[in-house]
Amino acid sequence: MTQEILIIRKTREWLLASLENFTIEQLNTIPPGYNNNIMWNLGHMAATQLGVCYLRGGVDLPAGTNEFFETYRSGTKPERLYTTEDLEQIKTYFFSYFDQLQADVQTSRFDNYTPWTTRYDIAVKNINDAVGFLPFHDGLHIGVIFGLRKLV
């Protein structure tokens, strides 16, 4: 699983670098016709990693992540203006749980992963499939972010 996580890490590092010159106001802007912004998409990418790997795997979310997950999970939208502190939290969650995830996989915490099918008709049968799904999901939101970048 190390290569998959490396791909996700590098892609997310590249994405954040591409947003370095954007202000917090730009990251919070919801253009007409959209229901979210760049900040929400970033947070959603990190929250999806937690949900797809942990919750779908029948494992409790890592300590301290419940509120973050509920803010950015699928079906939510921005309910407030996000702050620079929120952005720093997203950046932390973008990367910090990969080490925990790898450790948890090695301890067999996900041996009872419940198979499911995504809304994109992708079968996710185990934790390895779940991690393999993340680059696809991130790619969808990176596309949205790049569209939003042109509008803010």
Rank of each mutant, 00 (worst) to 15 (best):
Y120W: 14
L101W: 09
D86S: 06
V131G: 08
F146L: 11
F69L: 04
K77R: 13
T118D: 04
T29S: 09
F68M: 06
V152D: 04
V152W: 04
N35W: 00
L87K: 07
Y82A: 00
G33C: 04
Y120D: 13
T114F: 02
Y34P: 01
G132I: 06
N35F: 03
Y82Q: 03
F22D: 11
L101Q: 10
W40A: 01
T71K: 06
L16A: 01
V131R: 06
L19G: 03
H141Q: 11
Y34Q: 03
P62E: 06
E67Y: 03
E20Y: 01
P32S: 09
R9W: 09
D86F: 08
I7H: 14
T65V: 09
Q89W: 04
D121I: 02
E67I: 04
A46P: 11
Q49D: 10
S74F: 04
G64A: 05
Y72Q: 04
N128C: 00
R80M: 10
F98D: 14
E25L: 02
N126T: 00
T92F: 15
N35I: 01
P32F: 04
G58C: 05
E70Q: 15
G132Q: 08
N21R: 12
W40H: 05
I142S: 06
Y72C: 03
A17V: 09
D104H: 13
H141K: 09
L15I: 08
